[in-house]
Design a protein around this nucleic acid. Structure first.
Length: 254
DNA sequence: ATGGTGGCGCGGCCA
């Protein structure tokens, strides 16, 4: 079972690259974030034409999540308890034996911003939902753009990235709580060193200089983390013309 | 230190 996540920053612009990537890697599940389109305009037929099914929850211009699958997605959820949120950032579905929780976590803007308050309250509600899902489902995969770099080794320059959004202590504490509840960071099951990133700013030639952050994650509950045999960040699509600013993360489970 | 790029949609917001 191959499961992947990719913040594609517009489904419209990136569709050809997504189809190319699906063809190359043949994942069973691909979770997308920042589709940036309303459901009526989602390119469902183009994805179905290459042998996949797709579910999506979008809005005009911003946010938006989707899950592309080989198998039928069931028990689909777009809104979780106690979170009345017009922003489309969560898409949950059961696919085969797996409970898939696809997240586009708010960026937060700055520590003094209302958006940061929103980010922390949003994460608290997701944590509660995760606890409930772990009780109901034996095989949970929570993945997506977390907009959190969990550790110092997940940032290119810890001095610059010491106390802003994406690295602040409260955000990292929530990430640790996700792990404490029984999830495993699949990438760190294998790679222990620094310098591995999933996002590079479009500006200042950040990708060429590898000035990035690891903020896109695949977290798996214990029973399936044991069956994880690889987890890689595929930097190749970031080298494309008109790339997303994020790279896909791909995990394989036996 | 500031501003650098990109997407949406056509002015300004968001990342």
């Amino acid at each position: 079972m191959k499961i992947a996540t990719w913040n594609i920053n517009s489904i419209k612009v990136r569709l050809p690259q997504i189809l190319q990537w699906l063809s190359e890697h043949q994942p069973d599940i691909l979770a997308l974030q920042e589709t940036k389109t309303i459901d009526e305009n989602f390119p469902k037929a183009a994805i179905e034409a290459v042998g996949y099914q797709v579910i999506f929850a979008g809005q005009k211009s911003y946010n938006g999540v989707a899950v592309i699958t080989r198998h039928l997605p069931q028990n689909v959820i777009t809104d979780i308890p106690d979170l009345l949120d017009p922003q489309r950032r969560i898409l949950v579905a059961s696919v085969a034996d797996y409970r898939i929780i696809n997240l586009y976590v708010p960026n937060g803007e700055s520590l003094l911003s209302e958006k940061y308050t929103y980010k922390l309250s949003w994460l608290a509600k997701v944590k509660n939902y995760l606890q409930q899902q772990l009780k109901e489902h034996p095989h949970v995969v929570m993945l997506g753009d977390f907009n959190i770099a969990p550790e110092t080794i997940d940032v290119h320059d810890p001095a610059i990235w010491s106390d802003g959004v994406l690295v602040s202590e409260p955000e990292r504490a929530v990430f640790k709580e996700f792990l404490s509840l029984g999830l495993n960071d699949c990438f760190r099951l294998f790679e222990k060193s620094s310098g591995h990133f999933s996002w590079w700013d479009y500006r200042a030639a950040s990708f060429r200089r590898n000035l990035g952050l690891r903020i896109d994650h695949i977290l798996a509950s214990e029973s399936i983390a044991k069956k994880c045999v690889s987890c890689i960040i595929d930097k190749n699509p970031r080298k494309n013309e008109q790339p997303s600013d994020h790279a896909p993360v791909l995990a394989e489970f036996l």
